[in-house]
Amino acid sequence: MNKQDMTKPVFSAQDVTKVYRSGDVEVHALRGVSLELFEGEMAVLLGPSGSGKSTFLNIMGGLDQATRGTVRFRDLELTACSESQLTRYRRNHVGFVFQFYNLIPSLTAWENVSLVTEIARDPMDPGEALELVGLKERMQHFPAQLSGGEQQRVAIARAIAKKPEVLLCDEPTGALDSKTGIFVLEALSRINRELGTTTALITHNAGIQRIAHRVFSFLDGRIAETRVNETRIEPADVTW
């Protein structure tokens, strides 16, 4: 990532708050979060449970709406979008990876990926995407025939097959052992490097933060600390 890229924010969030109402109780999930993510950047969102990082990721991904504040993806103001605009936004620009894979059990690995390539504007070949995550050999397997790590890599292939501008990963290694987790991180890191996809990655695991360009630490719905990694490490060197 060069200096020039850093001047073009892909995301910019201004004073974002999110309040859930649950009966008479108000839950303040976000209490004024502002940040910018840049082209090709890999960011890690770190923090304890309930610190607001997932809520923030969901708002960036167009899965949820902010209560106040603005979130922009390039020129698109997500906080002003309708439901169908957000659907279009997710379809065309965003790739998601979740802790629990969320593959379609009735579709094979290849079909899970082509689910997305069928509706994307300029997708890569599903086989190519699976090759990027090292699963070319197991394309015709159903999710139930794959290990957890393999399933997560199919999920990553599915997320990147549309060549998204952003990849949002919520605890992608949360359900995996260290060896498989490293495998998944390597896939994410390779995509970030080779395709220049802006990547935001939530994790509980403090060891993972060192693979990122920047680290945002969430606490009580705010960003408590922003840190730039002067030297990044390779996923293989992450200690679990």
Binding site: L115, E118, F142, A144
Partner: peptide, 26 residues
């Protein structure tokens, strides 16, 4: 419970994917 196993009914065939979208295959 173990994840639902799908049999490879209709799996793989090129014709299938020419005829139907993945949503229909699902």
């Amino acid at each position: 419970p173990a994840p639902t196993r799908y049999r490879s009914v209709l799996a793989g065939g090129r014709l299938l994917h020419l005829l139907f979208s993945q949503l229909t295959v699902m």
